[in-house]
């Protein structure tokens, strides 16, 4: 079973630290507002930071800076592409932060990690203490939408129509992906084989990309038409659709310990193209 899920990256970094910092100038983040941009977390400059790169591999730049003890991971674009949410250890507590790509300083939202926006950008779904919450960004109200007796929930992903949230849950018997109404309710199972977790919707809402123990796959929300997208040696993780749904960006590692490189592959499967290399690049999101 996979022991380290997305949010565990933060704990992992806290425990094992990061390599010595290299010189890395944060870019003028306002210039990163453009269609066809991929954000990801990377330790290429020492501590984990949020970086961006164009899908053709150009324009690689750091979007966040912080003290060497602070690590930023799990970036997610807002629906309009003007902001990103990310998880960070800034201030000593793992929390959710919002960065406006227009140039403002990051703003702490609340405790938690693994956040994702609703389609209208007014709410976020996130994980806190292995349960899934929805938070109103304006009023600050929160609601737990995962069943109280479900022990290890992770990776919430909001459907494009805003009605459902996909998430993963880990049991003794393994992982499974579920759907739950965004207002809460009884989850329905999508898939429960091969350590399925890390769900994320296609832009049209007809597919969910997820990861198995070692590969990236897609499946219809009703659990049919399961498709393995990657089938390579090593480990593939963190698949995310491109804005047009035709491609998927994911991480490739020689082993479960990395190091991780970003690749882009057609969503139907095919030949992957190397996007980044050098140290570890993880948790991509594409807008």
């Amino acid at each position: 079973m996979k022991n380290f899920r997305v949010g565990s990256v933060v704990a992992l970094m806290l425990y094992f630290g990061v390599p010595a910092a290299l010189a890395a100038e944060p870019a003028d983040s306002s210039s990163a507002v453009a269609p066809g941009l991929i954000v990801f977390s990377s330790d290429r400059s020492g501590p984990w930071r949020i970086w961006s790169v164009r899908p053709d591999g150009s324009g690689l730049r750091a979007l966040t800076e912080a003290t060497p003890d602070e690590n930023d991971v799990d970036p997610v674009f807002s629906p309009d592409g003007k902001s990103i949410l990310f998880s960070s250890t800034r201030g000593g507590e793992v929390g959710l932060w919002k960065l406006s790509l227009g140039g403002n300083k990051p703003e702490r939202i609340c405790d938690g990690d693994q956040a994702e926006w609703s389609a209208d950008g007014r709410r976020i779904a996130f994980r806190r203490q292995e349960r899934i919450y929805v938070r109103d960004l304006v009023g600050g109200g929160e609601r737990c939408i995962s069943p109280a007796d479900w022990p290890h929930c992770s990776g919430p992903a909001w459907s494009p129509d805003g009605k459902r949230i996909a998430f993963a849950c880990r049991w003794d018997a393994g992982n499974a992906i579920f759907l739950v109404d965004s207002e809460g309710g009884q989850p329905t199972k999508v898939y429960d084989k091969q350590g399925a977790c890390e769900p994320h919707w296609s832009p049209d809402g007809t597919r969910i990309v997820y990861e198995t123990e070692t590969h990236i796959a897609t499946i219809a929300p009703d659990g049919t038409k399961n498709r393995l997208v990657t089938y390579f040696g090593g480990v593939q993780r963190y698949g995310r659709f491109s804005p047009d749904g035709k491609s998927i960006v994911y991480c490739q590692g020689a082993s479960e310990r990395g190091p991780w490189e970003l690749y882009i592959i057609p969503a139907q499967g095919g030949t992957p193209a190397l996007l980044t290399e050098g140290n570890s690049d993880m948790n991509p999101d594409w807008h």
């Binding site: 996979k2 022991n3 123990e213 070692t214 590969h215 480990v235 082993s255 479960e256 310990r257």
Partner: peptide, 9 residues
């Protein structure tokens, strides 16, 4: 890795 899961190291 594909069969028993990650972590053979």
């Amino acid at each position: 890795r594909n069969t028993l899961g990650v972590g053979p190291c």
